[in-house]
């Protein structure tokens, strides 16, 4: 038998890690579903059902079997994309999530783009001009970003840019006149309206998304610029940079061709983490901006005691979170020659 190449071994161990972590996630959500004070049978049939109906559903749900068997059934169902039926909407939770998820994806993607395009240059500049006003500014931006409750900033943003200045549209995804004009392709309104050439809808959707996306972008900006700064500082203090300067290379070349090139992989890792955080952080923002995404779906279901929907949403976000985490870790290990 030929020896297993090391990259295959690494890939194998990573896949095992992903599987174990997701299994752990399922176990936690399963246990949450078990300890909750709501009777899952009554949640399905209502309170006025007869004892026979109760028993029937009780056996249907597999509640008579040992816990470990119940867990196995649960995992098998989830792996097939079956999260059960939502009590609130009366539909399959997986269908509901497929419908609301693109809205969150759109919001988080735009937010991350804003964070990257502003945060990376800010971090690089702060590192290069260390101690200058731009470094102070980066520090200030970060500090505010780490300290402000995101839902409050959303409210203040609405008050200022919608209520007083009237620069953007208010809560919601698109104005009432433009609803349902664009036939969904990807589910992301900006993309769909571009593909269909509906520029009016695009403009209206953009004026709705820009404020929440900028706020989310601000939070990832705070994180990305801080990390970029510390990565850059580490590079700028190393000897090859001194060598490059001694050789007489221009400052621009030293910074962008030498130092920045070496932090690209680390940066992608950070961006992936920032993206994962935004998917999660969008929960509160979606509530403020009445954004019909997965965060709002989870919260509304939660207030209606619709546990299937809550746990389904938790699993979807958790899985994406885990995958992004591990993806960034993998990227790091494969492309950074030092870790080989």
């Amino acid at each position: 038998m030929p020896p297993v190449p090391p990259w295959l071994k690494k890939l194998g161990s990573t896949l095992v890690t992903v599987a174990v972590t997701i299994l752990g996630l399922l176990f936690v959500t399963f246990m949450i579903g078990r300890v909750m004070p709501i009777d899952p049978v009554l949640a399905v049939i209502g309170e006025r059902a007869t004892q026979e109906q109760y028993n029937e559903v009780f056996y249907d749900l597999g509640l008579d079997k040992p816990l470990i068997v119940q867990f196995a059934i649960y995992v098998a169902n989830v792996l097939q994309g079956d999260f059960g039926t939502s009590i609130r909407t009366g539909q399959q939770v997986s269908d509901d999530i497929a419908r609301v998820f693109p809205a969150t994806l759109e919001l988080a993607t735009l937010g991350t783009l804003i964070g990257v395009f502003l945060g990376v240059p800010l971090g690089v500049l702060a590192a290069v001009r260390r101690g200058s006003w731009i470094d102070q500014l980066a520090r200030f931006v970060g500090l505010i970003g780490y300290s402000m409750p995101i839902f409050w900033l959303g409210l203040v943003g609405l008050l200022l840019f919608y209520g007083i200045l009237n620069w953007v549209s208010g809560p919601g995804r698109v104005g009432i006149f433009y609803q349902g004009i664009v036939e969904p392709i990807t589910g992301m309104l900006l993309v769909d309206s571009t593909l269909r050439g509906e520029w009016e809808v695009f403009r209206d959707a953009f004026s709705h998304i820009i404020l929440p996306a900028s706020l989310l972008g601000y939070y990832s900006l705070a994180y990305i610029s801080r990390m970029t700064r510390s990565f850059m500082l580490e590079q700028l203090n190393s000897e090859y940079i001194i060598t490059a300067r001694v050789k007489g290379l221009s400052e621009r070349k030293v910074i962008w061709h030498h130092a920045f090139r070496n932090i690209r992989i680390q940066l992608i890792t950070v961006i992936a983490l920032a993206y994962a955080n935004l998917l999660e952080g969008s929960v509160l923002t979606e509530i403020i901006f009445a954004w019909p995404g997965i965060g709002q779906y989870i919260t509304v279901s939660l207030l209606a005691n619709d546990m299937n929907a809550v746990l389904g949403g938790t699993i979807v976000i958790g899985t994406i979170f885990v995958c992004l985490n591990i993806f960034s870790d993998l990227l790091y290990r494969f492309f950074d020659p030092r870790s080989k």
Binding site: V20, L25, I32, E280, L284, L302, I317, G318, F321, I326
Partner: peptide, 24 residues
Amino acid sequence: MRITDIFLAFPRLILALAFVAALG
């Protein structure tokens, strides 16, 4: 440490939401 890593990989706010939903 495997258990720790599993918890570390979870989205915190979402998990806290689910916990509170279950506990009341």
